[in-house]
Each structure stands twice: as C-alpha cells, then as structure tokens.
C-alpha cells in the first residue's frame, strides 16, 4: 500500500470557552489513501466540521500530528499552508460560500487568481469547470440568480478548477432539496471514478452510503470504520 495522503495521529482539538474547555476532537487516528472516497458521518456536534477544518489546513490541532502527503502540517508557515489549500485541496461548504457580487465564472476562477494563472486561461478553465458541472450556460449569472443546487454546483466547479488531489466537502447537500442532492452526489461519484480523493462530511446515512468507506465520529472520536480500507 502506498503512503496515505492523510494521516492523523492522536489529534486533539480543544476550545477554551470561558469557564470550561470543550474537547471537540479527542484523539483521532485515521488514514486516508490517495483516490479514496470517504464519508465522515456522525451526529451534530460530534466534531465532524472540526475534523474537516484540520484536514483542510484551515485550523491546527491542539495536539497530535497531521501529515498531508507525508508532510507534517504543523511545521508549515501560513503562506505555505495557503499554497497547500490552493493547490491540493478543493473545498465545498454547506453554505456554498460564493461571493454574491461576482458572476459564477469569477467565483470559480478565484483559486486560479491566487495560483497566479494568467487571466485569459483562468476564464477558459472556469468555464470548462462550470460546463463539467452542467452550468456552462450560467457562467455570467450571479449567485443570487441561481437556485441552491446550482449554487452548490458552482461551488463544486470552484473546488475542481485547480485540479486538486483532494476534495473536502462539509455537508454539501445539507441545504439542498433531494433532486439537487442527487445532482451534487453524482458529481462526487464521477470525481471519485476519476481518481480524486474525496472526504465528504454528512449526518445523513443515504449520503454516506455512496462513499467507499465510512468513518463514524462520536464525541470527538472515531467510533467505527465501515467498508473497505
């Protein structure tokens, strides 16, 4: 077996909230291989989002280590982490997180702006990514002019546009109706078939069932691992 793209070793995350300390993660050990499709499932408040933020280098563990593609994240500078997020990771959030003032294609090209891709190429690649999620005709629409499902597909296009090795999605279907949910999940299936590593966070079992493997999180710990490794 090759070296895992994600390797968590006794990861703790604690929040100081006034009088007492909340331990959101209590010693997570996990490995995810390149190209795996993993669902992280668990009840609300179990620490799923906290876990994803650490996986996405948006936050750092209180203790324990996180190796991303073999590199210890805690040794990296802010600028280096920004580059990792830019090149290696594509995020999809529950609240879409699109910039309302910009048309769809400008939202999609944003990661390319920070990657230093020339302008003409950016537009081309943004339109291509939008076409891939079935929104090629909506490139010039602003988020407010799109349905929730369409907005989330724009967000998926944004996550795809840099061709990252890994896609992290935190409850991507949480705000969507069932039809849009199917659309978005089908997109993830396709990406998985193309070899992308996908970590999908959800609290819904029928969503988690699409993944190759499930990590069950309860009270900040991995409870059970279901499916093939």
């Amino acid at each position: 077996m090759s070296e895992p793209i994600i390797e968590l070793d006794q990861v703790w995350k604690s929040y100081e909230t006034g009088a007492f300390t909340v331990h959101a993660l209590r010693g997570i050990d996990a490995q995810i291989q390149e190209g795996e499709y993993v669902a992280v499932i668990g009840p609300s408040g179990s620490g799923k989002s906290t876990l994803m933020n650490i996986l996405g280098c948006l936050d750092v563990p209180t203790s324990g280590s996180y190796h991303l593609a073999g590199q210890d994240v805690s040794t990296m500078t802010e600028a280096a982490l920004a580059e990792v997020r830019n090149r290696r990771i594509g995020f999809v959030f529950q609240q879409f997180n699109l910039l309302a003032s910009m048309p769809a294609w400008r939202n999609v090209e944003l990661p390319l702006v920070y990657a230093g891709v020339p302008r003409a190429e950016r537009r081309e690649r943004a339109i291509a990514a939008l076409t891939r999620v079935g929104l090629g005709q909506r490139a010039d629409h602003k988020p407010g002019e799109l349905s929730g499902g369409q907005q989330q597909r724009v967000a998926v296009a944004r996550a795809l546009v840099t061709e990252p090795a890994m896609i992290l999605a935190d409850e991507p279907t949480g705000n969507l109706d069932s039809e849009s949910t199917t659309d978005v999940l089908e997109l993830f299936d396709e990406l998985s078939e193309l070899g992308r590593t996908i970590v999908l966070i959800t609290h819904e079992h029928d969503v988690a069932d699409r993944a190759g493997r499930q990590l069950l999180v309860r009270d900040g710990q991995i409870a059970t691992a279901v499916g093939a490794a």
Partner: peptide, 15 residues
C-alpha cells in the same frame, strides 16, 4: 466571511 473564503481558496496573509 469573504476574507475567510479567500484564505480557504489560497489567499496568503500578504495578499
């Protein structure tokens, strides 16, 4: 939120 999003997408503190 916009700042957070830009950072998640790869904006460095400097940019």
């Amino acid at each position: 939120r916009e700042i957070g999003l830009r950072k998640a997408l790869g904006a460095t503190p400097r940019s």
